[in-house]
Amino acid sequence: MNNKTIREIAVAWKEYKRPYVKQSTMAAYLLILENHLLPAFGENDSLPEQSVQSFVLEKIECGLSVKSIKDILIVLKMVMKFGVKNEWMNYYEWDIKYPTNTENKKLEVLSVSNHRKILNHIQSHFTFTGLGIYISLSTGLRIGEICALKWNDINITEGTITVRRTIERIYLVEGEKKHTELVISSPKTKNSCREIPMSKELLAIVKPLKKIVNDDFYVLTNDEHPTEPRTYRNYYNGLMEKLSIPRLKYHGLRHSFATRCIEAGCDYKTVSVLLGHSNISTTLNLYVHPNMEQKKRCITKMFKSLGK
């Protein structure tokens, strides 16, 4: 076996992997390699469990979330498997332990009154930029999907919005050169390409606009050039401050939409499809946390069915 270092294997792996993944995915992989994996393992020619476990504990010490660390290890495993396949290194099985975190991170969502407050404000102070926030709160669209939305994605006859693309600024690493680039591409996964019905209120707002706008223009700018997520996030933060609403990430609008759907008793599969999740377990893990009242109702229902 002709052993190579992780750095050498990573160079070959990048070229092998590039044709098969989206540009934004590749950019994320390269960033993980540059910032985390090569500084820690670049000169190693093997990846025993002990080294990887130490790396994990070190990253936790630095404040990285378990989710971020697992994403980093996915890339490390891909590089290792590629090295093994080419007989450049030995395969190692890892059983990584993570410190148990008993605290369940609470999902950040708007209160019902603040949810309503934002919708009412945008309705009475209409702007194209504001419309994006209204759409996110009414459909659960992600910020990149909102920024990439065009008027021709809105069908007033059917009363639907179709999600076809997303926009993001990606970080490109090319040898010594590092720069960012704005990229418009297909959404996150194939399930993210989806059709969402509009509420009566949203339809009433966009119907008259559709008669006068250029179908090829972006909704947020009403122009041929889109706005990028970073800029739109700043606008959103400013609006929240103006309305005296507690700080909430833009993604919290999506969480708020999903939470309202669950609270209203919508079935989980439908909520999952509306959000464009690749499987229902993502939806269940994120949004379905029955409270004591719901648990009691469930038990009562079950005993009723037994004729008790």
Rank of each mutant, 00 (worst) to 15 (best):
P229Q: 02
C266G: 01
L284W: 04
G276W: 00
L182W: 13
S186K: 02
T166H: 00
E195W: 03
K269S: 02
H255N: 11
T189Y: 05
E181A: 09
R260P: 02
A204M: 11
E201H: 14
G175F: 12
L284V: 05
E168H: 02
T282K: 08
K190I: 07
L284A: 03
R164Y: 00
C261R: 03
G238D: 06
S281Q: 09
T270I: 13
Y218L: 09
M198D: 09
F217C: 13
P208H: 10
R169N: 13
I262E: 02
M240I: 11
H255K: 07
K249Q: 12
V206D: 08
P187K: 05
Y171C: 10
D216H: 15
D223H: 01
G265A: 03
L220F: 06
K249A: 10
Y250K: 07
D215G: 14
A258W: 04
K207L: 12
A264V: 03
D215S: 15
G265Q: 01
T283E: 06
E263L: 08
N191R: 04
I212H: 15
L239I: 14
T189H: 01
C261I: 05
P226H: 06
M240Q: 07
A264R: 06
A204E: 15
L239C: 10
Y236F: 14
S244G: 09
R169M: 12
V183P: 14
P226F: 05
Y250L: 11
L284N: 04
V219E: 11
P246D: 14
S186E: 04
I262C: 03
D223N: 10
L284R: 08
L275F: 03
P229L: 04
D223M: 00
K269P: 04
R169L: 08
T162D: 11
K207N: 08
Y232K: 01
I170M: 11
N285W: 03
A258D: 10
R254D: 02
L274Y: 03
G252Y: 14
T283Q: 06
V206T: 08
E176T: 14
S272D: 05
K200D: 15
I170N: 06
E224L: 06
R164N: 08
N191P: 01
K249V: 07
K207F: 05
V173R: 03
D215Q: 15
L182M: 12
Y268P: 00
E201D: 15
Y235D: 02
D215F: 14
V173T: 15
L203P: 13
V273Q: 03
R254Y: 04
E263I: 09
E228Y: 10
T166D: 00
D267F: 01
A264E: 12
K200I: 14
Y236Q: 08
